[in-house]
Simulated scan of single mutants.
Amino acid sequence: MPPTDASTDTDAGTDTDASADTDAGTAGEDTVDLRLPDELVALFSVDEPTETTDGDLLDSVAGWGPATTPVGTFQLVPVRIGRDLTLISRWMNDPAVAAFWELSGPETVTAGHLRAQLEGDGRSVPCLGVLDATPMSYFELYRADLDPLARHYPARPHDTGVHLLIGSVADRGRGVGTALLRAVADLVLDHRPRCTRVIAEPDLRNTPSVSAFLSAGFRFSAEVDLPEKRAALMVRDRVLRHLL
């Protein structure tokens, strides 16, 4: 789970960070290191026989399609290491990003982080955020209810978490992060009918990041003591999505 947030923004023009990660090579817990029994994974992934999915834990992110946002047409595209590694590694070596994600260094560092997700059980899906046909951000969608985070808050089945970094400095500080956070939360709620909440856990000290989530329709739920930080648990509720 991420200790803080990396490289998004608020509408007021302040560079901020949204739900970053420390998975590979850090002392904290991470999204992909908690091994659950196959029977439990199956219980969470197959609930209602009326639901049509491809059987994966996040309901086929690759097929979700584009979304129209105030900043352009946006789409989540699942990562392919051979195609995307150099770009994502370059973003991870941006000092503003590296301070939170802790994945700076040679491409092998980022490759290991990506491969752990791509070769895992599907509880975390790394994606490029493509805006108007240009890859410009990196997202991780993950099953928060199957993540170590679930030890620290009252998780519900199918809670879906989001981590985000904005790759280009030019896309920071002008409302892009807020727009994309809202778009991704809406995509999750549109395509994951069993998910009632989208979850994030920015560092409580990162006021601009918390503000970005609030502007994107999330609500502040609680302060949560995680192994590597005190976090603001942010929640976007399905029942409130058209009100916030």
Rank of each mutant, 00 (worst) to 15 (best):
A116C: 08
S60R: 13
V125I: 15
G161W: 07
D94F: 07
L226Y: 12
T26Q: 03
G129K: 00
G173S: 08
A18G: 15
Y138S: 04
P193L: 12
D190L: 14
D121P: 07
S221A: 15
H242T: 14
L58S: 07
Y138I: 09
D11P: 05
P106M: 11
H158P: 00
D5Q: 12
T52E: 15
R123W: 01
E223T: 15
V176Y: 04
E228V: 10
V188W: 03
A67S: 15
L58W: 01
V188S: 09
G177Q: 02
L187I: 04
R241W: 01
N93T: 03
Y138W: 10
G13N: 09
P208N: 08
L36V: 08
D9M: 05
S209M: 06
A24K: 03
D145C: 13
M92K: 07
R143V: 11
S215N: 13
T69H: 03
A116N: 13
R205D: 14
D54Q: 08
R197A: 05
S7P: 01
T52R: 13
A18D: 14
S124N: 07
M92F: 12
T69F: 10
V71D: 11
S221L: 11
D17G: 15
G173E: 05
S215P: 02
V169D: 15
V239T: 14
D5R: 11
L36R: 14
S60Q: 14
D171L: 11
L114F: 07
T26A: 13
P95A: 10
T26H: 08
P37K: 10
R182V: 00
E51Y: 12
E102T: 10
G167P: 06
W91R: 03
R115Y: 11
F218A: 10
P2E: 12
Q75V: 15
S168T: 11
F139V: 14
H158M: 10
L131N: 07
S209I: 03
D132M: 09
T134G: 00
D145L: 05
E29H: 11
D159N: 08
V97F: 07
D145W: 02
V41G: 02
G65H: 01
R172T: 10
A6W: 11
D186K: 00
A18P: 01
M1I: 09
D54R: 09
Q75H: 04
D30H: 13
R182N: 12
H191D: 02
P148S: 09
I81W: 07
F213P: 04
L36A: 05
I88Q: 04
G217L: 08
D94P: 01
T53Y: 04
R80V: 09
A232P: 00
D47E: 14
L164G: 05
S137Q: 04
T26E: 06
P148W: 04
E140W: 01
I166R: 03
D33F: 05
L118V: 06
D186M: 06
R90N: 13
R230F: 00
S104D: 15
P208G: 04
C127A: 13
G25C: 04
P95R: 07
D9W: 05
V71E: 10
R151Q: 12
L214A: 08
T178Q: 06
T108M: 06
L76R: 01
E102N: 10
C195I: 02
A231F: 04
